[in-house]
Design a protein around this nucleic acid. Structure first.
Lengths: 216, 216
DNA sequence: TAGATTGTTAATCGATTAACAATC
DNA sequence: TAGATTGTTAATCGATTAACAATC
């Protein structure tokens, strides 16, 4: 199958495939079938084959997928074969924690600048990065060719920061603040709000002692 | 409409509704229509009405939804009208950052215990909580009636921690480690992996200078 | 009453899964 | 050749959206 508009569900699975494939490679496993992948990732094998087939014929009938080759292909699809620079705004606890993931993101993606508006924070170091004032954001984004922004500021400031990021020419935003950002349609925004996640988890708890089934 | 099995998509939207309703309440707005909600949350009004109607008739025709009443109802559906205690495992940067969200979670949900396996961490304080050794996990979970676990340990340890949490009787897990956990079907697991999020965002970047359209 | 807005049914759209011919 | 596994079409399933009678 050739390209159509690819659904977000498919795109969100690609990094999961990639992660597991990297693991296989580390274990020097050369080949993997959609069945094995599906078993490990708890997905339907047909779905995995279909997902991959959107982008090309990466497998071999009767054999499966060559692990290093598929890694290369998925990295290319996700644009992880070029370096993607990322800016982080909000040098609080969460921001600092995420900065440490630079090691995880390896060479492909990298937080290369950190900003905050709170004067005492400015000039402090987070690992190798120095926290910069917001005024420098636009020029730094331009100079470093930064394309993705991470927002880890309090909810009251999130929209303002998003506007600044967009004004600076960022193309996508990962938003950790618990607000729905108003953004133009060409900007991709993913919500990464941990409180929302937790609250929806609570739904699945068994009924508490003092509670009845609410099947009314 | 009365209850059926509610889809996960619906459940994930409920906290988003709740968040905005709380905001309306703070601004002393008494009533809201599905249209206004939809506009603000970037959702189809019919979808919002349908979502809510799964759980009961909460609105009034011609009027809309009473804000405090709907808040109460959604809180009940999500079980946020009882206190839900949460345990966090992994007192690294990310774990510490999340602990600070206790203020956000308000009275309804609360991280009430923090664990780590790294001896120098044990006994240190994160806000009001003292980091405990893993050996105490099961008994603390029991004593405090903890029902949800958050995993913020490195990927190599995540599965082991999940097993311990499940053994201790936890009902749901929010997993920040970049691995697919193997868990029994009655345990609800949400992945909250920030690297996966970032990688799928990269897909939506415009083509880089040195890259062609990959429409093959 | 006229206008607004719900709850719900029916229509549409999209995503997942099953099945199988092609082929390694 | 026999067995395995892909890529893809067709069938199924589920979720979103439109439309509208009921009613505040």
């Amino acid at each position: 199958m050739k390209s159509d508009k690819i659904s977000e569900a498919v795109v969100r699975r690609l990094p999961v495939y990639l992660r597991f494939l990297n693991d296989l490679q580390k274990r020097e496993i050369a080949t993997v079938s959609s069945q094995e992948l599906g078993q490990r990732l708890d997905l339907n094998p047909a779905q995995i084959r279909k997902d991959l087939a959107y982008f090309g014929d990466f497998g071999r009938k009767g054999i499966g997928y060559d692990v290093p080759y598929l890694i290369e292909k998925i990295r290319h699809i996700l644009k992880l074969d070029q370096q993607i620079n990322v800016v982080l705004v909000g040098a609080g606890n969460l921001g600092q924690a995420l900065s440490n993931y630079n090691i995880y993101l390896k060479d492909t993606m990298k937080i290369t600048a950190v900003f905050d508006s709170y004067p005492p924070k400015i000039g402090t170091k987070i690992n190798t990065l120095t926290v910069q004032p917001m005024e420098e954001l636009a020029s730094t984004v331009r100079e470093q060719g930064i394309r993705i922004g991470i927002i880890t500021v309090p909810e009251q400031e999130a929209q303002k920061v998003a506007d600044i990021l967009i004004g600076a020419g960022i193309e996508a935003i990962l938003n950790f603040a618990p607000v729905i950002l108003k953004t133009p349609p060409e900007i991709r925004v993913h919500a990464a709000d941990f409180t929302t996640d937790l609250q929806s988890l609570a739904y699945y708890l068994h009924e508490g002692k003092d509670e009845e089934e609410h099947g009314y």
